[in-house]
């Protein structure tokens, strides 16, 4: 299963119908876990998406008004280069923030409301994670805030190419601004997971595997109990929702119950 477009690509592609079925099973299961996922239909069409909102603690950067003076554009441009080292070391970032207080830029810790949408991309034949975030007073978070909130384990990756990792894009069904975790590498990500599953002759819910892998990048965790312990290395990467042995996501499987 190595190489682009080699054998096995058939299994890598997720068609829309399979996506929908996998989402429905995921939502059903989420209900039994009270994990908050729902399926939203787009009115007047047969399309839809999976949705969840959560409150998470996070850091935001308080800015002076947008576009004033030199504008935030310069900040964005330098993030990928000069500030690289700072980002790897959180303490340094905070120290700097304290030192910069006079410049009206400060970091605060508070609750952030995240809204996650899982959509199907027919171009990539893969699921795509859209999300937006706001403070409790409704103020939306900026792209820089989102980059700043990326899990530390993923910063290295983000810094290598922030502009092809997370950007703001139009939600293709709602037409509103959302952030998106770029899907172009989804198949690379899924390849080893699918290969492992097929080697062990397990069936696997694509959505479960994918979401538990990419979700932690943007503060989305999938509350799982690793059912056999040995199989999933947990930790920041997030244990996968125990992919059921054959037979799909049987509700009875005790390993799905959260504690």
């Amino acid at each position: 299963m190595t190489g682009e477009g080699g054998e096995g690509t058939g299994a890598l592609h997720l068609d829309e119908e399979t996506f929908r079925r996998a989402c429905q099973r995921f939502v059903q299961h989420s209900r039994t876990l009270s994990d908050g996922w729902s399926w939203e239909e787009v009115k007047g069409s047969d399309e839809g998406y999976m949705r969840k909102t959560v409150l998470v603690p996070g850091r935001t950067i308080a800015h002076p008004p947008r576009d004033a003076g030199c504008g935030p554009g310069e900040d964005l441009d330098t993030l990928g280069q000069g500030e690289g080292q700072d980002f790897q070391d959180e303490e340094e970032v905070e120290e700097q923030a304290v030192g910069d207080e006079e410049q009206a830029t400060s970091e605060t810790t508070s609750a952030i409301r995240y809204e996650y949408h899982v959509l199907y991309s027919c171009s990539y034949q893969a699921p795509v994670l859209y999300f937006r975030a706001s403070m409790l007073d409704g103020r939306p978070l900026s792209l820089e805030d989102m980059w700043g909130n990326v899990h530390p384990n993923y910063r290295q990756r983000l810094l290598q190419g922030p502009w092809d990792t997370i950007t703001q894009q139009e939600h293709p069904l709602l037409g509103q601004p959302f952030f998106v975790l770029h899907p172009c590498r989804t198949q690379d990500l899924m390849r080893p997971l699918l290969a492992a599953a097929s080697a062990e002759n397990r069936s696997l819910n694509y959505i479960v595997s994918w979401l538990s892998s990419v979700g932690p990048v943007v503060a989305l965790t999938i509350p799982l109990t690793a059912h056999s312990g040995a199989e999933c290395s947990s930790g920041s990467r997030g244990a996968r929702w125990a992919e059921s042995q054959s037979g799909g996501l049987a509700k009875e499987t005790p390993s799905y119950r959260v504690r």
């Binding site: 947008r66 935030p72 554009g73 900026s142």
Partner: peptide
């Protein structure tokens, strides 16, 4: 309604 566009990088 609109995406922010603070720089040409966007």
């Amino acid at each position: 309604d609109l995406l922010h566009c603070p720089s040409n990088s966007v």
